[in-house]
Computed example of a mutant assay.
Amino acid sequence: MKKYLAFLFCLIISISIAQNTLKYTPVNKSPKATLKQVSWIAGYWQGKALGGLTEEVWTAPMGDSMMGSFKLVVDNKVKFYELCTISELNETLILRIKHFDNDLKGWEEKEVSENFRLVKIENNKVYFDGLTFEKVGENKLNIYVVFEKSNGLKEEIKFSYTLKN
Rank of each mutant, 00 (worst) to 15 (best):
E108F: 01
H99Q: 09
N76A: 10
F133V: 04
S160C: 01
F147E: 14
N151E: 14
Q37G: 06
L5G: 03
A42T: 04
I94P: 00
L50F: 10
S14V: 02
E155G: 04
L104R: 01
D75G: 06
L53Y: 14
L53I: 13
D103C: 06
N151Q: 10
L8G: 07
T59L: 08
P31T: 08
N165M: 01
I97K: 03
T25K: 05
A18H: 11
A60M: 14
K164W: 02
T132P: 01
Q46H: 10
I94F: 05
E111W: 05
E122N: 11
T54L: 04
Y24R: 01
K2F: 11
K135L: 10
Y144P: 00
S65E: 14
G47V: 03
F70K: 03
L104E: 12
E122Y: 09
N76V: 04
T132E: 04
V78M: 06
N123V: 12
N124K: 06
G51A: 07
Y127E: 06
P31H: 06
F80W: 15
G106R: 02
S87R: 09
L131F: 15
I13F: 11
M66Q: 08
G152I: 00
F128W: 08
L153F: 13
W45T: 02
C10D: 13
N102G: 02
I121F: 00
E155I: 11
M62P: 00
T132A: 08
V119K: 02
D64L: 11
L93E: 04
I86K: 02
A49R: 03
L22Y: 10
Y144D: 08
K3G: 09
D75S: 14
K164Q: 13
K154I: 05
K154W: 06
I86T: 06
C10S: 14
N124I: 06
L35Q: 04
V146G: 01
Y144R: 00
T34W: 01
L22Q: 15
K110Y: 10
E156N: 07
V145Y: 00
I157C: 09
G51N: 07
F7D: 13
T34Y: 00
I41D: 03
F80C: 15
I13N: 08
N102V: 00
S69E: 12
N124W: 02
I97W: 00
T34M: 00
E156I: 00
S39R: 02
E88Y: 03
L163S: 04
N165R: 01
A6S: 10
L22G: 08
S16K: 00
L89D: 15
T92N: 10
S65T: 06
N123G: 05
I13E: 12
I143M: 11
V145C: 02
L35E: 02
G106D: 10
S16V: 07
L53F: 14
K110I: 07
Q37P: 05
P26D: 13
E55V: 08
C84A: 13
I121A: 01
D103E: 12
K32D: 15
P26N: 08
V112D: 14
V38D: 04
C84S: 12
L93I: 10
I94N: 04
N115C: 09
T34S: 09
S113K: 05
I12Q: 12
P31M: 12
I94K: 02
T132G: 05
K32G: 14
V126N: 02
Q46V: 10
K110H: 09
D75P: 03
T92M: 08
S160I: 01
L50E: 15
N28M: 08
L11M: 12
E148Q: 13
I12P: 09
V38Q: 02
T92I: 08
